[in-house]
Amino acid sequence: MPIKIPDQLPAREILVREGVSIMDERTARRQDIRPLQIGLLNLMPNKIRTETQFARLMGATPLQVELTLVRVGHHKSKNTSEDHLISFYQTWDEVKDRKFDGFIITGAPIELLPFEQVDYWKELEQILDWTTTNVHSSFFICWGAMAAAWHFHRVPKYTLEKKAFGVYRHGNNVPASPYLAGFSDDFAIPVSRWTEVRSADIPTESGLEILMESDVTGPGLLSELMGNRLYMFNHIEYDSTSLKEEYDRDVAAGVPIDVPHEYYPNNDPGRPPLNRWRSHAHLLFGNWINRVYQTTSFELGKVGVSKVQKLTA
């Protein structure tokens, strides 16, 4: 099944060119099925790029997905036009009475700030608490994952001496996990961050399980059964050229930056980079969507009820 996104969303043209199946509003209304309701809280500065990346991965799954774009209400974007935000986004205040089968919170380029100094931290804490009652399964990405791990389990983040930047091999720690069905024993994932979490800080009683881990960059993906949450500390959703654009930007600005690890052929920035993570990105999101479909309530209004019962028992 295709993904349903607004007809005029800029990502639509890109996805159509790539062959991703897109459903228009009229066709979606004719289908006698309940699409999965997925929300995307987009904290990245280039919102159009990020919308496209996540829509691409969800549009490749065999289930019908209806994507709702969400933004924090108490932060003004410097990199995306207000017209785009007004046309395609809703604030969390506008959606907080809704229920979602799945909800994604992206990364944000603010990882060096203490969480409490982020200007929308109080609102984000409210959103994270809201996911326990109004969302069946949450998927946190990069800084969003660190923020959620701190909020729910007080897992700290540490500043790195040098940016973890490039494509790193990760091991498959739990091959039997439904989220890793079909995964290789090891695989490449893009990493771009100045901070890290450490496996030694994950509370044993938290129910958090390390699904992916790198010998160099540490935990890559955690799952949490009780809260039905995934924490991805890296950017598996990245395009082929995302790391290149970050590298070129820093070089042009005179910012000291290493050539991204194992990204360019022969580590030569003059050559086109190779995408060695695309298949696993599609696999992870396909597994997540499939898991959401198998475990969510058919009646959307009942989403979150069983989670609240478990958490208050």
Rank of each mutant, 00 (worst) to 15 (best):
D93N: 15
T241Y: 12
D119Y: 12
N267A: 11
E51N: 14
N287I: 04
A147I: 02
Q90P: 01
I33M: 11
R56S: 00
A181R: 08
G227I: 11
D248V: 14
L284T: 00
S206P: 03
P260F: 07
R198A: 05
E125S: 13
G39Q: 10
A147K: 01
R276Q: 15
L9T: 09
S177H: 04
D268R: 02
G73F: 08
E246C: 05
P203A: 01
D129W: 04
S297H: 12
Y264F: 11
F139S: 09
G220P: 00
Q31T: 10
I236L: 15
Q90A: 11
G270A: 03
S223F: 02
L128F: 13
A55D: 10
L57T: 00
I48Q: 11
E246L: 02
P273D: 03
E161Q: 10
V118P: 04
F233V: 08
L284F: 12
L63S: 14
P219Y: 03
R98K: 14
M146W: 12
V259D: 01
G182C: 00
Q31N: 05
G254N: 05
I104F: 02
H136S: 04
K163F: 13
L41S: 06
N266P: 01
A11N: 04
L311S: 05
L9M: 09
N79E: 12
K76F: 14
V20P: 03
N173D: 05
G207W: 03
R169M: 10
S206F: 03
T106G: 01
E125H: 14
I22S: 03
V191Q: 09
R249Q: 11
V216E: 10
F165G: 00
L36E: 09
I33E: 10
P219H: 03
D119I: 12
E205G: 07
W121P: 05
A28M: 10
L9C: 05
L41T: 06
F183P: 00
A149V: 02
P273S: 07
A149R: 10
N228D: 09
W150V: 04
M44F: 07
L63C: 08
S184F: 06
I22R: 02
E82Y: 00
L311R: 10
H74F: 14
L300G: 05
T217G: 02
R278Q: 14
Y263T: 06
L63I: 10
K96R: 15
Y293A: 14
I33Y: 08
L67K: 14
L40C: 05
T217A: 13
F140D: 07
D215G: 09
D7P: 04
Y89T: 07
F233P: 09
T296K: 01
G102W: 03
E224S: 12
A176C: 05
M146H: 12
T159I: 11
Y89H: 10
L274F: 13
V72T: 15
V135C: 08
R26W: 11
D93T: 14
S177I: 06
K157Q: 15
A181H: 13
F115N: 06
I86N: 15
A200L: 09
R198P: 07
H261N: 12
V72P: 11
